[in-house]
Design a protein around this nucleic acid. Structure first.
Lengths: 152, 152
DNA sequence: CACGATTTAATTTTGCGCGATATAAAAAAA
DNA sequence: TTTTTTTATATCGCGCAAAATTAAATCGTG
């Protein structure tokens, strides 16, 4: 058995998993100010770029299925951030439209990217894990590219 | 307002979030064969490296708190993968010990890293997202390092 | 038109993450 | 020794993720 391969830091699973949670945590205080959760923020990012998408189109952008999006959207409708509008053409599809409140949040969100960078700088563990993940990904992408070419 | 900054692909949140989910999904078929979920597998990776850790020590390695670990460990105890043992020296601490069944799973898990690599090669979306995240992280780590130095 | 197949959305169920809080044991302070 | 604080774990509640199921609408073919 290859013990080395099974070590926590030699697999891609752990670094990506922990950094993902650490990044979510770093965003949290700014999102809480706005009354948003992390996935809600991601959905708004999509809608701020392009409004009036169907649930399916949103799913394509966020790589999420309706079973995740449906409840998420319902909660956000209750918060008066968006509206669902059933399509006249195809009664099965629902199009999502930002409310004025939802549109206005874009201004509040504008300084977040800059603020986040500063937050990360104060969190040593997070920066360390990001660097580890960076190295892991660079190593993995080399391996992936090499394997891809050897198949041609 | 800086529209560019708020675009989905220019923030670190989305790439890390989606790749994390894609990687979890790639592991899933192999873990299902073993009857494990993703976090359960991570916990086993830790215990295969070093058995008899306290819940606290496990939390440090996985960057998880007891509010996540406690129920996780209880489920795995029911599956007969591990045992909890309250320390005699310090009655507050609970030490986790693999059962024979838990130890044996290590052999089943051994080929997973190799298999995963091949799985990733067949999933274009995942590889694309990994490459995007790699670029994003390389850019971010440059920015982080530069900012760190300018503070000294 | 009829009817089965397909597509799409919603619902249900299970298992995390994590903030807030609780509880009990151990250590430190008074 | 008593009180206070700290530490280790557990519990609760909410919000995702995602598989499986259900329901509704549309399409394809005869």
């Amino acid at each position: 058995m290859d013990d080395q391969q099974l070590r926590l830091n030699n697999q891609i699973c752990f670094p990506i998993y922990s950094v993902s949670r650490l990044i979510t945590k770093a965003y949290k205080p700014y999102l809480e100010e706005m009354g948003l959760t992390y996935p809600q923020y991601l959905l708004l990012l999509v809608l701020w770029e392009r409004d009036e998408l169907s649930i399916n189109q949103i799913g394509e952008k966020l790589l999420l299925n309706t079973n995740t999006l449906s409840p998420l959207i319902k909660r956000m409708e209750k918060m008066n951030l968006l509206q669902r509008k059933r399509s006249k053409k195809d009664e099965r599809s629902v199009f999502i439209q930002l409310t004025d409140k939802g549109k206005a949040l874009k201004n509040t969100a504008a300084p977040i990217p800059e603020k986040l960078l500063n937050t990360l700088l104060t969190e040593d563990v997070t920066v360390t894990e990001i660097m580890l993940l960076k190295d892991t990904l660079n190593k993995w992408s080399d391996i992936l590219l090499e394997k891809q070419h050897s198949k041609d």
